[in-house]
Structure formats: structure tokens, C-alpha cells
Design a protein around this nucleic acid. Structure first.
Length: 590
RNA sequence: GGGUCCGUAGCUCAGUUGGAUAGAGCACCUGGCUUCGAACCAGGUGGCCGGGGGUUCGAGUCCCUCCGGGCCCGCCA
């Protein structure tokens, strides 16, 4: 519709230009927008106000000229000039009724756009280190990333959902060491547990599994392990030095193959857990990308070589630096440490390059707000590699703060006192979680009220939307029970019987759905889908309880009933389609 | 100190990339179930869009500045 109106206005402008013999900017930048208020029709354009200066006319005069030259269209009932020079379009009823047909023809596809040629996007989200279970902060990234990916897909974009698995770093070595120490404890050889190691209960679970698969083969004496280690923090030393020494002791004592077994036991166990957790959260990935593979395949070296070749690397104090400041970052960044170990940033660069080598035209990253420092760094890396930085988008998700009623739930990673995503899901349910996480703009802090999310009351927006869907399903069950038939073709033939204001409002809402999806995709704002669904549900509830006239769907008048059942069915379809985008179920009963 | 996100009704937040009279939910007040599910609906109260300056036909939205808050600023991961 927007495109249609755009064309009409364009035609009118060209006509005006010809008649008045005036110049027109090569690409006149006027907008076609939905109106806020019904008094102003359905769509409006600001063309007259934007272009009046260039044409040397008064805005209202130009508006009149545009209206006069507007080609006729069967979709438009009326055109008005209002305010300072808006041209308002009132759509015809038949245009509204046409929406029903489109919804039925497209079904689950309604709201989805045709494939966009040449746009392949990777959306990377969550990518939490596999050193422990996901917590509620990751939950928001998961809900946002998964919803965004679905919305983009609905916009016709070829989307890959990726989880970057940090299976290669020091943190993972700390996990492996933690697992081994717990294993030894279970095997009857308790060894002092470092301050900096992973203390969670889940480490014991992994150690138990390891013990049943490896038996006593990985046992070593406490003396072998503890000999000549630098003191830990609580022993008056440096915790980092202590744990690093312990890691290398662990590697030496176990040998490469056994160390790898312990390491993989931790990695695989936690990764499986994360996979299951996200799966139950209705979040699925196309690719679980191993960081280690970047190193073993030589991708890291190739990326660094490329930066070196292009003259963006230098050596200082034995380390290799990327000259990020050339590209607007606040400081240069170490890529290879003095000890020869590449930093995580080295892998990040390699992964970035890898994404474009795999043929993606755009890379979207979803990060927690605490990682905002990475934006400049990654964009600088992109430029250094010779990539177009505008093809790298980094979207930040602000923190979620849990409330139980008005009480704030305290969390700190340090003390291990964090609420896991699984606990949250178990308490409030996946649907409510997904909806709550995604109903606010990603760059807005989120107050997540557990009591509200759990409540099955009117205050809870999830149930409000789901209830609209269940209500419609109930009407259709009721129809069967009463022996009332639904004839879709009959309803289609009688669609002009839908003349009540709340019915026309609903049709308007249905017509707007594809626009909402498109807007949400363009602005990377899946919360718009949640808002749209609330509005659609509100329009339906309002219709259902309408007091001004008899609006019962299951009417004795066959034509009217069929028409209204069609309308209800279309609403149900769109509710289901929208909920699907944000990963929330559309229940038939509640 | 530098960077970044934010500040809109008592509370939590929308606001269609600069449009017309700033909206919704909760809370509070009033009303609605013998007919499709009241997990619902209808109506009402409630605002210096943090302050100030600028850009223009037009600013909650863009720019500058100040005030207030969250987060970040390692050869950490």
C-alpha cells in the first residue's frame, strides 16, 4: 500500500512539474506514513511541506496541486489536505476487506516479505563462555537475538543464527582444572581448591561423570600437584599467578591426551547443558562456531597476516599490536601477547573475517551492554581487514534487573549468587520470559518483575495476548458444539457485512501487521512486534466485549456469522504469526 | 577524567528514523457477567517529554551544553 501511494504521489509530482515548468530534486525525499489519528485518514504524506521550497510554492498550494494531479486509485476513498499541508489518504472499504483474503491466502506466511536478493546476514548472539550455566542476563540476549533473527527472516533476509563457542581460552583451562580438582576430591585425593576456580555445584556433576568414565586413571598425589606452587590470594599471594601455575601443572601431570579428556568433559557437558537450556527457551541455532577451530585451521594466523600485510600491525615490548587508533578506536590493541599467545581479540578478528569469507553480506552482533567497548574495536578491525564497517552492526542489550514484587533480587557473579536462566524459566515459564525480555527496547534497562510474569492476571501482558488467541479458539470449539457451521467462502462473499467500527478497526490492525514486521526488521527492534500484538489483542478483546451493538461472532444470521468467523480466524492467524516471531506459544486453551 | 546507554503520567514503558491535540499497562475512582471464556470490556483522574540554548514550516525525536542515573575503560575472558 505504501509503495502504491508512493507511486501515486510521485506521478502527481511529475505532472505538477510538467505543468508548472519547475525543477524537481532528482530524488524527492518525502515520506508516506501511517497517521496517528483516524480523523487524518489511514496514510499521510508530507511531500508538499518538504518540497514546497524547492518548487517555490506555499505548502498548502502545492498540496492542492498534488491532490489535483493524483491518478485515480480504487484503493482510495478520499484525499484531504489538512494542517500545514499534509495530504491525507482515506483507504476504501474494499481495500480493508482485501486484507482478509491476503491473510487466508498466505496463512503462516502472512507478514513475510519476498526474499531480498543479495542479503545474507549472520546474527551472533549469547555466545556465553561455556564455563557455567546461562544466567538471566544471557536470557535477554537470547530472547532478543532469536526474535531479531526471526523478524529479519520474515523480512525476506537469509539469516544464520550463530553461537560463538569460546572453547579455547584461559577461562576454559580454569574450568578444566576445576573439574579435575573436584574429580580428585571425589576420588579421595582432596587438593586445596583455588580462590579463582569455578566453585559451582555443576562442576561436581561433571567430575562425577568423568570419574565413572575414566575411573582412577586421572588420579595424582596431592604432593605432586601442590609442590612449589606460588601462593593463592587467600594465602597472601596472587590468585592469577597461582591458578596459571596450577593449570600448567595439571597439563604436565596429565599429558596432552588426558588433559584434553578432562577439558572436553567440562566443555561438552556445559555446552550440552546450554544447548538444552536454549532449546527449552525456544531458541535455536544454525551454527555453533568453535573458536578453537579458528586457531587449528590457521584462520587466526591468516587474519593477522592480512593486517600485517596491509600495514596495520606493529611490534612493541615483544607483543604484536593492531593499530586500531587509525580507525577511530581509542587505543591500539594487543593481538599476540609477549608470550606468543594470541589474545581473544585475535580470534575475534579471524572470526569476523571468516564471516565475510563465508559469503555473508552483513554481520550482526548482539552483545551485553558491558561489551560496548568492543564496537569501536571490531569496526576498526573490519576496516583494517579492508571490510566495510557499515556491514558490521553491533546491537547492545542493556541489563535486566530482577524484581520480586518491589524487591530487587540481588545478584553477583563473584559470589556465585546468580539466578540462572533455567531457574527463571522454571519459575515463570518460557513464554512469559520470552515476552518480558523482548517487550522493551533493547537499549532500555529492563525491570523484570517475577511476580508479574508469574501472575495469571490481567496485568500480565503475555496472557493478555495469548488469551485473545485462546478466546478465538474457544469460539470455534463452541461453534462446533452448537452445531453452527463455518463457511469460509460464504463469509468471504458476505465480508461487506463487517461494518461496525470495531470490525473495521480490527481489519486495519490486520492490514498493518506486515508493516509492523518490516519496521521492526529495519530498525532491529523486535519489541515492536510485542507492542503490535498487544494492540491487536486489545482490538480483539474490545470487539468481543463491544457493548454498542450485537457483535457476537456466533450469530444466527449465517452470512454475518461466516463473515465474523473469517475475521476472527484472520486475527487468530496474525496473533499466531506474530507470537511465533518472538518465540512465544499461541495456546488454544489456557 | 574519557566513552556509551538512558531520563516521557505516582510506577513500568511505547512513541512508526522530524509531523497534526504526547499514548498504553499498572495503581486510584466509576460502571459492566441468565447468551461466543470477566485471564475481558467501557469511562474517569493523572504531563514544563530532566533544565537551558540551537537547527526549521514543524522537535519527545536532530545538534550543543548542564544536571541526574546504569554500564565500560587490562599483554582479563
Amino acid at each position: 500500500m505504501k509503495e502504491h501511494l508512493n507511486e501515486l504521489v510521485m506521478q502527481a509530482l511529475l505532472d505538477v512539474r510538467r505543468k508548472a515548468a519547475v525543477e524537481l530534486p532528482p530524488e524527492p525525499a518525502f515520506a508516506i506514513d501511517r497517521t496517528k489519528s483516524k480523523e487524518h485518514g489511514d496514510f499521510t504524506t508530507n511531500a508538499a511541506m518538504v518540497l514546497c521550497k524547492a518548487l517555490g510554492m506555499k505548502p498548502r498550494d502545492l498540496a492542492a496541486q498534488i491532490v489535483q494531479h493524483l491518478p485515480p486509485s480504487r484503493h482510495i476513498d478520499k484525499v484531504e489536505i489538512a494542517g500545514p499541508g499534509f495530504v491525507n489518504f482515506f483507504l476504501s472499504r474494499s481495500c480493508l476487506y482485501g486484507t482478509l483474503k491476503r491473510v487466508f491466502e498466505r496463512g503462516v506466511e502472512y507478514g513475510r516479505s519476498a526474499p531480498v536478493e543479495g542479503e545474507r546476514v549472520t546474527v551472533e548472539f549469547v555466545s556465553a563462555n561455556p564455563t557455567g550455566p546461562l544466567h538471566v542476563g544471557h536470557g535477554r540476549g537470547a530472547a532478543f537475538g532469536a526474535s531479531l533473527a526471526s523478524v529479519l527472516e520474515a523480512c525476506g533476509i537469509d539469516v544464520q543464527r550463530e553461537y560463538y563457542v569460546n572453547d579455547n581460552g584461559r577461562q576454559m583451562d580454569i574450568l578444566a582444572t576445576s573439574v579435575w580438582l573436584r574429580y580428585l576430591e571425589l576420588a579421595g585425593t582432596p587438593v586445596r581448591f583455588p580462590d579463582n576456580a569455578y566453585k559451582g555445584e555443576y562442576v561436581y556433576d561433571i567430575a562425577r561423570a568423568l570419574k565413572s568414565s575414566a575411573g582412577d586413571r586421572l588420579r595424582r598425589t596431592a604432593h605432586e600437584i601442590g609442590a612449589d606452587l606460588p601462593p593463592d590470594e587467600s594465602q597472601g599471594g596472587d590468585k592469577e599467578a597461582h591458578i596459571d601455575a596450577l593449570i600448567s601443572r595439571c597439563k604436565t601431570l596429565l599429558g596432552e591426551s588426558d588433559y584434553r579428556q578432562v577439558f572436553d568433559a567440562g566443555l561438552n557437558s556445559i555446552l550440552d547443558d546450554i544447548r538444552e537450556d536454549l532449546g527449552q527457551f525456544n531458541v535455536r541455532y544454525d551454527t555453533w562456531f568453535s573458536e578453537r577451530s579458528l586457531e587449528t585451521s590457521g584462520a587466526v594466523k591468516r587474519a593477522v597476516d592480512r593486517l600485517t600485510r596491509l600495514g596495520h600491525m606493529y611490534e612493541n615490548k615483544g607483543a604484536l599490536w593492531f593499530r586500531a587508533t587509525t580507525f577511530g578506536d581509542e587505543k591500539d590493541r594487543v593481538v599476540v601477547r609477549e608470550n606468543g599467545q594470541p589474545t581473544y581479540f585475535a580470534s575475534d578478528i579471524a572470526y569476523l573475517l571468516n564471516k565475510f569469507e563465508r559469503g555473508f553480506s552483513r554481520a550482526i552482533y548482539v552483545f551485553g551492554a558491558d561489551h560496548h567497548g568492543y564496537i569501536a574495536r571490531l569496526k576498526a578491525a573490519a576496516q583494517g581487514l579492508g571490510l566495510d564497517p557499515s556491514k558490521i552492526e553491533i546491537l547492545l542489550v542493556q541489563f535486566a534487573i530482577l524484581f520480586r514484587g518491589s524487591e530487587r533480587v540481588q545478584m553477583s557473579t563473584r559470589s556465585g549468587q546468580f539466578v540462572t536462566l533455567r531457574e527463571l524459566r522454571n519459575e515463570v515459564g518460557a513464554d512469559a520470559c520470552r515476552f518480558f525480555y523482548v517487550m522493551r527496547s533493547n537499549d532500555q534497562h529492563l525491570d523484570f518483575d517475577l511476580e508479574l510474569a508469574k501472575s495469571t492476571s490481567r496485568e500480565n501482558p503475555v496472557y493478555y495476548v495469548q488469551y485473545a488467541h485462546a478466546r478465538i479458539c474457544k469460539v470455534f470449539r463452541e461453534a462446533i458444539e452448537r452445531g453452527l457451521t463455518h463457511n469460509r467462502a460464504g463469509g468471504d462473499a458476505a465480508k461487506q457485512r463487517l461494518t461496525l467500527e470495531p470490525e473495521l478497526d480490527l481489519l486495519g490492525m490486520l492490514q498493518r501487521y506486515p508493516e509492523a514486521v518490516e519496521k521492526a526488521g529495519e530498525t532491529r527492534a523486535p519489541h515492536m512486534i510485542a507492542n503490535y500484538l498487544r494492540e491487536l489483542a486489545a482490538a480483539f478483546h474490545s470487539y468481543y466485549d463491544f457493548k454498542g451493538a450485537d457483535t457476537r461472532i456466533l450469530n444466527d444470521d449465517d452470512d454475518l456469522r461466516n463473515a465474523r468467523m473469517n475475521l476472527a480466524l484472520a486475527v487468530r492467524q496474525v496473533l499466531a504469526n506474530g507470537l511465533k516471531l518472538i518465540g512465544v506459544n499461541a495456546p488454544e486453551k489456557m
